[in-house]
C-alpha cells in the first residue's frame, strides 16, 4: 500500500461472541489496522449482532470481557458500525440492545456497501 493512499476496509462479523474466537480476533485486528488511518467500517450480520448485545458478564465462564473495548472504537476513529436488521429481528433484539451507537440497515443495503469496499475481511 503506497504512502497516503486511503482504502476502504470493511470487517464483516457473523459469529456469536464467546463460542468461537472470531469476535475477539476481529476486534483486535480492527484496533491494530486502525493505526494505519484507513477508512474502516464494521458490519455485524447473522449471529455477529450478538457481539454488541449489552450486558456481558463473563465472570462465570472465566474469560476476559472484551465488550467494553467496543466503546473505545470511537477513540480509534472507527465509528461506522452497521447492523443487519433481519438478524436483529430473528433474535428478538433491537437497536436499544446494542452497546454502542450503530446504524441498522437491511442485508441488501449492507450488500451494496460491501460492493463499494477496496478490502473486505471476513470473521
Amino acid at each position: 500500500m503506497s504512502e497516503g493512499q486511503i482504502k476502504k476496509f470493511m470487517y464483516v462479523n457473523r459469529k456469536a461472541p464467546h463460542g468461537t474466537v472470531y469476535a475477539l480476533e476481529s476486534l483486535e485486528v480492527v484496533l491494530i489496522a486502525a493505526a494505519f488511518d484507513q477508512d474502516v467500517s464494521l458490519a455485524f450480520m447473522d449471529d455477529g449482532v450478538y457481539q454488541l448485545k449489552k450486558g456481558f458478564n463473563t465472570k462465570g465462564i472465566e474469560v476476559k470481557n472484551f465488550q467494553p473495548t467496543y466503546r473505545a472504537l470511537d477513540d480509534y476513529d472507527v465509528n461506522k458500525l452497521y447492523v443487519e436488521k433481519e438478524a436483529l429481528d430473528a433474535r428478538g433484539l433491537t437497536q436499544d440492545d446494542m452497546v454502542v451507537p450503530v446504524e441498522v440497515m437491511s442485508r441488501a443495503e449492507i450488500g451494496k456497501l460491501m460492493e463499494t469496499q477496496d478490502v473486505v475481511l471476513s470473521f
Binding site: P17, G55, F56, N57, T58, K59, G60, V63
Partner: peptide, 12 residues
C-alpha cells in the same frame, strides 16, 4: 446460567 450471563442474555 454462566453462558447466558456472558452473552448478556440472562434477563430474557
Amino acid at each position: 446460567k454462566a453462558d447466558l450471563e456472558a452473552r448478556g442474555m440472562a434477563d430474557r
